[in-house]
Write a protein that binds this DNA or RNA. Structure first.
Length: 265
DNA sequence: GCTAAATGTTGAT
DNA sequence: TCAACCTTTAGCT
């Protein structure tokens, strides 16, 4: 599930559920037992999301760094929490609710300098108020690397994953293979603006929807909407705009999708 | 019921 | 460039 929108949505939720209260922490799986013990009994003071990283600041200067990776997941609900089963890395509990973390790439305690170092190596996150697009522009506009690669580089721009990469390039009519330095200022500005809007919509909706209303066919009944994307995972299907079969290739070890007609090289 | 793939990153070749 | 990490789910049988 996790691109930047998921992380910021979780940050809001966990802030609402846990901020300002002493928490219970445990690691039923045992892999984070020592860390959970240190967190246990402390109050969550701040929650600082950046890109795909979640930083939980507890009283006493203790920081928890969580990165969901490809299949990590937080689930939450009212107490009583269910009996822990499977690989439950971390459980947080207030007097009223619990949140369970499974399968994260990172679940670790870090020091304030380590938090600083982490943020320092991340590019601007369009979902953060303090995001400075000039930093992303500086990197992109000087690079011969393909824009489809640069968008996935968290040190250029933080929070974009494989879905947003494919979709935002389609909406911009940009070939993923165009070198960053050939994107141009106007196209970059449009890209940043569009990305910001799409990510915000993703936070609100809890899922990624990138198709414009006129390209969305009928119903949107259940959780999965078949026409939420223009090109992502639509290999060989007709482009929603021009009908050309959607192309696919591997870029940065991830499947890339684009429309050869709408996004000409 | 089984297998492959998945919205990600790191560290070793 | 690739395996490893670790979990869920879609698409088969």
């Amino acid at each position: 599930m996790p691109e930047g929108h998921t992380i910021h949505r979780l940050a809001r939720e966990h802030r609402r559920l846990f901020a300002g209260r002493p928490l219970r922490a445990s690691s039923p799986q045992g892999r984070f037992a020592a860390g959970a013990e240190l967190i246990d009994g402390r109050e969550l003071a701040v929650l600082d999301p950046w890109g795909k990283h979640l930083l939980y600041g507890f009283d006493g200067g203790l920081w928890l760094h969580v990165h969901l990776g490809l299949y990590g997941k937080w689930t939450s609900g009212p107490l009583p929490a269910p009996e822990p089963r499977g690989a439950l890395r971390l459980r947080l509990e207030s007097d009223e609710v619990y949140a369970d973390l499974r399968g994260p790439t990172a679940c670790e305690l870090v020091t304030p300098p380590e938090v600083d170092a982490l943020f320092a190596r991340l590019g601007p996150d369009p979902l953060r108020r303090d995001a400075d697009p000039e930093l992303a522009w500086a990197r992109l506009s000087r690079s011969r690397t393909a824009v489809g690669v640069l968008l996935m580089d968290q040190s250029v721009l933080a929070g974009v994953g494989n879905v947003y990469r494919a979709e935002v390039l389609f909406r911009a009519g940009l070939s993923p293979y165009r070198p960053g330095r050939e994107v141009g200022r106007a196209a970059f500005d449009a890209l940043w603006l569009d990305l910001t809007g799409l990510l915000r919509a993703g936070v609100r909706a809890g899922r990624i929807v990138t198709t414009r209303p006129e390209h969305r066919a009928r119903r949107s009944g259940r959780a999965t909407v078949p026409d939420a994307h223009y090109v992502y995972r639509r290999t060989g299907l007709p482009c929603r705009v021009c009908g050309t079969p959607v192309a696919t290739a591997v870029m940065v070890a991830r499947n890339l999708f684009w429309c050869p007609h709408c996004q000409p090289a």
